[in-house]
Design a protein around this nucleic acid. Structure first.
Length: 571
RNA sequence: UGCCUUGUGGUGUAAUUGGCAACACGUCUGACUCUGGAUCAGAAGACUUAAGGUUCGAGCCCUUACAAGGCAGCCA
């Protein structure tokens, strides 16, 4: 990108990180390079919070003709597994980002890290400490009191080097020794109080197997990994702000060729859900959801199974912006984003979720006809399809009322509505189920002249409802998903309660024997459909089988009628 | 009670060397409509945490408060 382009770009509003990048490009700090990285620890599945970090890092690289690496921060073998690296890579790819040939691991640099550690020892900037974990904590001091020097702080370089090599060789027990940076035990920044660089861990590593007995800590490994990869801007979340002086200290002491700049931004939070790995894990462990990819989970796997598109997630991340203040993004942003995308792209179909039988009394008994239905009014290129019509149909139970409330303009005795893409029908009567008192079926007459959905006499109807031919319908299961929690911020609840007390009991409703239009027979996972007037749905990738289809509701359509009803109920 | 960071409509973000607080979501009207969807038009909603100060003029600069978040793993 030329300086002129950078200049003109800088007129449009930018977040503070992109501003820094632009400034660095102008000053030539890193030449013309922009190089970021997304550095997940492979100890869990990616969630929507990671999506923001991913689109920030890859997005910046793309915008400035730079590069973004995928790097697994795998310095703690006791928590990390290959299963996670695979799912993480798949999720990043699904989101639509490409690390090309740059998938790296912090463990790729274990040799380098070790060598630099010896250099630091040689410089007298690191020492082997025999304090155990408990003692280390005591010596560290507190937030308000300075720490005390470790009694091992002044070992000779020779002794330190010897001990470190023997640590590496596996001569010592776990927890018996650490390598520490020699900085300042009285620093007001606790991270600078001789932080541990290496600990002894006799656990097999998912990539390096059992060759290492010692593993580097995050603070040491991360900055060096960034430097080795030539990262220019190392973007992380706010809780690492206090670590920045340490990040810089290591790189200054080691004198790496590159010295990336760490920049912190506020992590993403979403209303009506939780995003901590611990809490998400607890939901799975306690079987409050069925797995990590349960469509109610805010994991990328969950959103994917729910029917969210990568574009909708990327768009939301962009719109939400990036800053340094605590925030909770309303899930309405995400819902807007998915509706915006699906409205343009989803194929319209008709599906009756709670069927009510309708007999068209003046329609010939054994006749069926094929009517043309538009696949997507937003996209003429999507074409049309045929839908079978016959004497007996199903309509949505909610679309008929014996006693319609004010403003209701669907079916009720004496009222005429349009069956979408079919005919005008007028309700002439209904039967009640004697035991329950519920409407069991209704009767209508149709106007043959209104075929296709318009009456030649110019007569208008207020309501249009969806329907499906009883003889041609296929049965299917439909899972209606809603927000997982019933409160805006489940992380901040009444004293004595936990987020688990606020799980939305109606987050999942399963409907059996829904009646779907026959064109849905061959529906497959990965395609988004709109069930007209209801919402967007997709085939469940796990439980759906040909012949016994299962659909997930991604999100409802906006429903201003429901809003009006709710308002009159509460007022 | 130490250090770091952050306070702008309900929510998320803007405001270019100090110059009428902008945009999006949400909310509310109305129009249109073969989806009570979409679309279109419009409205309401913030004296920018508070109090001082500098200035012709402060969301922006300076004080001092207050509030929120983070930090005492051999986690990341």
């Amino acid at each position: 990108m030329s300086p002129e382009e950078i200049k003109s770009e800088s007129n449009t509003p930018k977040d503070f990180i992109r501003e820094i990048v632009v400034e660095d490009l102008k000053s030539g700090k890193n030449g013309t390079r922009v190089h970021t990285r997304f550095p997940p620890e492979p100890n869990g599945y990616l969630h929507i919070g990671h999506a923001k970090s991913i689109s920030l890092n890859f997005g910046i690289a793309n915008e400035f003709s730079g590069k973004c690496n995928l790097r697994f921060d795998d310095t703690n073998p006791v928590k990390e597994e290959v299963e996670y690296v695979e799912s993480i890579a798949a999720d990043v790819k699904w989101l639509g980002f490409d690390w090309e040939d740059r998938m790296f691991y912090a463990s790729d640099y274990f040799d380098t890290l070790y060598k630099y550690a010896e250099d630091l020892i040689l410089k007298g900037k690191a020492y082997i400490c025999d304090l155990n974990a408990e003692q280390t904590r005591l010596y560290r001091g507190t937030l308000t009191e300075p720490g005390k020097d470790s009694p091992f702080r002044n070992r000779s370089v020779e002794e330190n080097l010897d001990l470190f090599r023997r640590m590496k060789a596996g001569e010592f027990e776990e927890g018996s020794k650490t390598l520490r940076a020699k900085i300042d035990m009285s620093s007001p920044n606790i991270n600078m109080r001789d932080p541990v660089m290496y600990r002894i861990l006799k656990t097999e590593h998912h990539r390096t197997g059992d060759v290492w007995q010692i593993y580097p800590m995050y603070d040491y490994a991360h900055c060096v990994s960034d430097a080795v990869e030539g990262i220019t801007h190392s973007i992380c979340t706010l809780e690492f702000e206090d670590h920045r002086p340490l990040y810089d200290w290591f790189l200054d002491e080691i004198q790496t060729q590159y010295h990336p700049q760490q920049i912190e931004f506020a992590r993403f939070n979403l209303s009506y859900t939780v995003l901590s790995k611990r809490k998400l894990n607890e939901l799975v462990q306690k079987k409050l959801v069925d797995s990590w990819d349960d469509p109610r989970m805010p994991t990328l796997a969950g959103f994917r199974r729910r029917g969210y598109t990568p574009a909708s997630i990327r768009n939301m991340c962009e719109k939400v912006g990036v800053a340094k203040r605590e925030n909770i993004t309303d899930i309405a942003f995400l819902e807007f984003s998915i509706r915006e995308d699906l409205n343009k792209h989803a194929l319209r179909t008709m599906a009756v979720l709670n069927p009510l039988k309708v007999t068209i009394t003046n329609y010939p008994d054994d006749s069926t006809e094929e009517l043309d239905a538009v696949n997507n009014p937003e996209d003429p290129a999507a074409g049309t399809r045929k839908v079978p019509f016959s004497k007996v149909l199903y309509i949505e139970r909610d679309d008929f009322k014996v006693d319609p409330p004010k403003g209701y303009f669907r079916l009720f005795p004496g009222n005429e509505v349009r069956l979408r893409w079919a005919y005008f029908v007028k309700c002439t009567g209904y039967n009640l189920d004697e035991s329950t008192g519920e409407v069991s079926e209704i009767f209508c007459t149709y106007d043959p002249a209104s075929k296709g959905g318009d009456s030649p006499d110019g007569r208008k109807v207020k309501g249009t409802i969806h329907w499906v031919s009883a003889a041609d319908a296929i049965d299917g299961e439909v899972r209606l998903y809603d927000r997982l929690f019933s409160v805006y911020n489940p992380n901040d609840v009444e004293e004595g309660k936990s987020y688990l007390d606020y799980i939305n009991p109606d987050s999942l409703k399963v409907l059996q024997n829904c009646k779907l239009e026959p064109s849905l027979t061959n529906a497959v996972a990965g395609i988004n459909y709109q069930f007209e007037r209801q919402g967007y749905f997709c085939v469940d990738s796990k439980d759906s089988k040909p012949g016994s289809l299962v659909f997930n509701r991604t999100v409802t359509l906006r429903d201003t009628w429901a809003k009006m009803e709710n308002k009159s109920k509460t007022s």
